[in-house]
Write a protein that binds this DNA or RNA. Structure first.
Lengths: 112, 112
DNA sequence: CCCAACGATCGACGGCTGTCAATGGTGACG
DNA sequence: CGTCACCATTGACAGCCGTCGATCGTTGGG
């Protein structure tokens, strides 16, 4: 079963030392989760939501994708630790995880 | 023909406003270039190189990949603006572009 | 002039991935 | 209890992608 990636950074900064094959694989997994137009738009929609929470039914229309496709993308994002999932009665609310984005940014370009 | 992406940031921060389909597509292209274990290792090898320049023949062995495969990855990275290419006589030297990594990081998590 | 080394390109192949229609599970409500 | 909305899962399919072997252009050296 897919194990959720921890929010914490997975490796040292890219510019510091060469990545091992294992480090590169895990970091690539997280980057791949983000490297898709639909998923980038989902994350930006979640992050920009006023209430910070959005249900799936509110995403299909602005994205122009079918409901199963949106669910699939949300699953990928969730397994990568980039969004949180919370079910309340009939609706499932997703929210962005800013710390995960910051962790990725930190690996790419450590704060100066 | 593949047009090289400019080094400058392509969009506003993710957390600020929802991305348009076009913005998401171009940013995803650049992220995809980085979201691969081999290419991540290449970038880190280039960035960590003492002289800042590495030729293809020095990359095949530490990566454990064939020369055509390494050339392919370097082409992808070059078209994404993540590495520079400079041919001197027989050898071709590649170097990392730190500004490109910083531009990506800036979109993911703007530093305040 | 021929040869060797470097690097890019081509062609091919297997695997991964984004997408949808169809289906299933679950909670709300009359 | 029946029905409906929301969401996840499944199955299928086309397209993309990472990889390699083979080949080609180029440059430098005997």
């Amino acid at each position: 079963m897919p194990t959720l990636l921890p929010v914490t950074a997975c490796c040292e900064p890219l510019t510091q030392a060469p990545l091992s094959a294992e480090q590169a694989a895990t970091f690539a997994t997280r980057l791949k989760a983000l490297a898709d137009p639909a998923r980038l738009r989902i994350v930006s929609l979640l992050a920009a939501a006023a209430e910070g929470e959005v249900c799936v039914c509110d995403l299909t229309e602005p994205l122009g994708l079918s409901q199963p496709t949106v669910s699939h993308h949300l699953k990928v994002l969730h397994e990568a630790g980039l969004v949180t999932r919370q079910k309340r009665s009939t609706w499932v609310y997703y929210a962005a995880v800013p710390a995960a984005l910051e962790a990725i940014a930190e690996v790419l370009a450590p704060r100066g």
